[in-house]
Design a binder for these strands. Sequence first.
DNA 1: GTCTATATGGGGATAGAC
DNA 2: GTCTATCCCCATATAGAC
Lengths: 195, 195
Amino acid sequence: MGASETRRQIVDVADQLFYEHGFEATSFADIAQDVGLSRGNFYYHFKTKDEILGAVIAQRMSNTRAMLEVWKQEAASPAERILSFIHILIANRTKIMAYGCPVSTLCNELAKLDHAAKDDAAGLFSLFRDWLAQQFAALGREADAEALALHILMRSQGVAALATAFCDENFIRREVSDMEAWLHAQCSSSSLPHS
Amino acid sequence: MGASETRRQIVDVADQLFYEHGFEATSFADIAQDVGLSRGNFYYHFKTKDEILGAVIAQRMSNTRAMLEVWKQEAASPAERILSFIHILIANRTKIMAYGCPVSTLCNELAKLDHAAKDDAAGLFSLFRDWLAQQFAALGREADAEALALHILMRSQGVAALATAFCDENFIRREVSDMEAWLHAQCSSSSLPHS
DNA sequence: GTCTATATGGGGATAGAC
DNA sequence: GTCTATCCCCATATAGAC
């Protein structure tokens, strides 16, 4: 097997394990085992754990950009694009109830570790924020596009946090409906919802 | 020093370290050092790390109940009590920007570890949910009191999550104002905000 | 109730054979 | 590129002196 292919597999497995069990709780042995690699050989591909973390964050950035691009292509209007974002709460509900939001849980863990990569992880949120702000601007809300983007991003985070704690799928669906209603209200309004 | 006093100190220090650095990242040695205790003596008070975690959660439950009781006593109306809850985002903003919400970050970590105490940690959220639901019921919203409680709890979590990632105090203040406006709208409405 | 000393295991990381 | 063997450190946890 080629080295680049093995490397890609390692990053995929690490990405999943970091999400499901956390960065610290995941050991080299765990990753190596899931890839089907010996611990020794592992170090041929990655020298340190931080290096793997960097690769995982870079891949998530790349995957997120690709996903946002697809949403942009597939949705006919800015409002529908924002709905695509809102609906990941439904699409990913099972994993969210088990492990939370992959972005915020990583950011929180790295913040507590005071890890050098914590700002890089927060960059994932920036991707969503900027993309959402673009959509709100396209809706004619240039003046407060970023505030609106942060507001809907905030809601998705809040829903994910409580969904994990309570494992309540009805709660997710209710709040998603509420977010849809909120979005609809923004489309037919040009005033700031923020005092 | 009495054993019970030492034990109390251990729980206080563990509570703080679990919050600031996470459960897994905090070692017995870290706690012992901050208490001013040798590692060996530590085991006289707590046999396992899970035992400390249980004591920390129990103390947080107790402290939270006490705080909610104070809010109940000090505020003249249900709406003012809910405002007390909303304003912890402002009061604790510095720690939230550095370490996130102590409840959700613990719940998320324990969920990823699939730890036996994860439901106990989620019980902290239940305390807030039930207390908030009581206030909404007192506002005449008996029918959807719990949904409203979860909604405002959800928002506080979303704000905390993004505040940690972006370290943006203005964002916190803006969203708190928005929560106040939402609460005001609920007070002068008897219809469900949820479709 | 507090200490020092120590057992045991797992983690990250390296060396060197194949 | 992959393996085995190994080093070192730190973590939980225990034993036993004081």
